[in-house]
Design a protein around this nucleic acid. Structure first.
Lengths: 253, 253
DNA sequence: CAGTGGTCTAGACCACATC
DNA sequence: ATGTGGTCTAGACCACTGT
């Protein structure tokens, strides 16, 4: 009933990482750890793998192991709502990221609604929906995958279907067509990425993603928009501001 | 430039899992996979490890490998705010979970404020704060770790310092002492659990956690409460309702 | 008891980065 | 050329679970 050797080494290294004991962020090589701790390479690698899967380390083939550094960018879903017509697509991502060279790659299409989309938009599974898929980066680093779904009859013939930035912003566009959104439901899961997501977001092992699903409703309580945002955990903090329902609107910092 | 054998096996199994090809949820044993795919045990184990770290599989020593099943419980931070005096501590967890045998273990103490707490409560690092640590379960299954911090001068001598349920609810208690909260800031990170968190929440490999930090403010914009909630990703969805700031309050479903 | 996964070893070859 | 991590093998012992 003793602790396995690989777990012992993992614990030692975890403590040293927490104590910032690798100032240059570089760990000893596998062979050095083998000598220092009198273990086989397999056991050393097992310990290092464990730390990688905790998101504490990354490995570079032919180079070495390094302590992960995080920089979190604030993701504010509420900006979607506050957005007004500006020269840019004025949602949370574009607005907050103005100075960090935001780029995005847009694909637009018409597909049959999958089950989860149909349920949220309150349409039948297989009904046609317009889908806008956006892969968005900051300074060349991918920060989110954003997939929006709209019922076809609502947006057909509008700029939503053009694979370019929507100058007014998608919400303003919907409002201009008589579908102003006054309420949104946010659902957030957090899980490990699927292989395609990991590839697109350039995520290493041990880094989870959040899946943020927004459903937008009109004053008539009609669901007119569903968005699925995939966020890599090493680069995002999700932020909300809330005021008590009984309290008049407060100023926002 | 070919795909490694372990990755090939992982891809095959991943596809079979997605197609629900293991009706009883049980995978072939390691030795069966070795025969079927003509690989060494190490390679087979490497593939299975990969899928475990994606949260798709769990292993049971001496038994086998199984497909993970998820059941997500809705975590609604806004209930904290809407809470009024009831017979129970009326926050999001207790209220929503009433029928699922909620239990919690409470520890209360006075500690020196760590850096992140001090910053959010706008006090000096090392100032005394009251900390309430709650480990909360549903039907015996751990669902969250909830750690609340209060500036000592605000809550000293109140029920906050008693290691029991606060009958009125902590927010109502603060309000009764003249510190009604009207605004909250939510910050949500998602990452792999620390070993203690994994132990307490009974999390296997490949399951991330969300760290939800709430900071509560009075009408004078004084920070009176900071809460850190740790949520296991296989058992929680975070849910928010939002109404457009220009729109009168809508009814909530 | 037989079968399962967990641990550990020694050794080999490879692709890659660095100097 | 050397050193790094990535892949793969064969074999061994163990603890545990099921019958």
């Amino acid at each position: 009933m003793t602790t396995p050797k690989h777990a012992q080494l993992a614990a030692v290294l975890r403590a040293r990482i927490a104590a910032d004991d690798f100032p240059d962020g570089r760990l000893p090589s596998e062979s050095e750890l083998m000598k220092e701790h009198a273990m086989s390479r397999t056991t050393v690698r097992s310990a290092l793998k464990e730390l990688q899967n905790e998101g504490l380390l990354r490995s570079a083939s032919g180079v070495g192991y390094f302590v992960r550094r995080f920089e979190h960018f604030s993701y504010r879903p509420q900006d979607d709502f506050r957005a007004v017509a500006t020269i840019q697509d004025a949602d949370s991502f574009t607005q907050a990221a103005a100075k960090r060279n935001p780029t995005q790659q847009i694909e637009v299409g018409i597909v049959r609604a999958p089950k989860d989309v149909a349920r949220r938009l309150r349409i039948a599974e297989g009904d046609s929906v317009v889908v806008r898929r956006r892969y968005r980066s900051l300074d060349g680093v991918p920060y989110q995958i954003n997939v929006s779904y709209y019922p076809l009859d609502i947006v057909s013939g509008t700029d939503v279907m053009v694979p370019q930035d929507i100058v007014r912003g998608a919400n303003q566009l919907l409002a201009d067509h008589g579908y102003a959104q006054v309420r949104a439901l946010d659902e957030i899961w957090f899980r490990m990425p699927k292989p395609e997501e990991a590839r697109w977001l350039d995520i290493g092992p041990g880094i989870p993603v959040a899946e943020h699903v927004i459903t937008g409703f009109t004053a008539d309580d009609q669901a007119v928009r569903m968005v699925r945002v995939i966020l890599p955990g090493d680069r995002n903090v999700i932020t909300f501001d809330r005021v008590h329902p009984d309290h008049e609107r407060a100023s926002r910092p």
